[in-house]
Nucleic acid binder design. Sequence first.
DNA 1: AATACGGGGGT
DNA 2: ACCCCAGTATT
Length: 361
Amino acid sequence: MNKVIQKAAKVNHSKLCTSLLKWYDKEARKLPWRIPPELTKKGIKNDPYKIWISEIMLQQTGVKTVQTYYINFIKKWPKIQNLNEADENDVLKEWSGLGYYRRALNLKKCAEIICENYNGKFPNNENELLNLPGIGSYTAAAIISIAFDKPAIVIDGNIQRITSRLYEIKEDLKKSKSKIYEKLEKIISKERPGDFAQALMDLGSTICKPVNPKCNSCPLLKYCLAHKNNTYKFIPLKTKKLNKVIKKGYLYIGITTEEKIILIKRPKKGLLSGTICPPSSDWKQNEFPTPKPPFKGDWKILNESIFHSFTHFDLELKIMISKINEYPNDVYLEPLNSSILKSLPTVMKKGVALVIDNHII
DNA sequence: AATACGGGGGT
DNA sequence: ACCCCAGTATT
């Protein structure tokens, strides 16, 4: 490439960045963890703890869903020291309904490491952040740019999509990752790295959407090759969808003589990791397994099933109920009323709600 | 490189 | 009934 073209490209990158930030100054979404651009420019700094919490919650979870959880979480544990002293099961309860429960376990583990090894302060370089549980390449870069306002290449689903379209990158996302990285290196703002990253996320969420992007409102319209060539509908290339399987099993609702429901803590690994739930059977593909109730009792089965859809399979659970006289001492007992529902993962919530709503007990 | 890991929102 | 989403850890 000759020097004239190179220089022209550089000017273009810088203009693109300016256009984006100008748009962000006007259109930035107001979010509970965000410091708006007018205050960032005055030098108001983010609290890395809050950015971290929000970023972990936002992993594969929508902004709308996260907001309430974030506010409640920060209210309960305003500083990392509070989280460090919190009970793991309380953190999981606060997380219930958000999904990916391993995130909550890692959150707690990470708070312990930060408090014990880092004097309660987040390290401000990517490599050290990457060594912390639950922090991968995306979140490390997000914390560096948003919380510390230092340049970092933040790549999430939105930014992959925007960059692929801007430069009309047609390869599958797996293969195009390094190309996207190189393009972003050139356009990111060195002056306002945090706002730049957040601007791209807002753009992806409100304008450069997966389907029906609002190109006419896009501040980057004139830089976008996919728009120019009308290929944006196919970019980024969509990957093949996998067929879901159906699994079946039983949920065992054991009620003590004191009218309490018996719960157990699930293993730290695997589905619903570490959450406290009514015991359930194995979940067998296509057919119900042989019922093996966890406690001795006179188990009755309900007619009605509950259904729940996970990422890679659908689940049908039949509910079994029994009064229980004897049970191990490592179980958890809770009053069987609607107040326990909020601490259960959604699939379990459905099962217990069925029992409560039908006044079966 | 492929797979496991939840759940809600949008269309 | 699909698809999507501010991903990470494990194998």
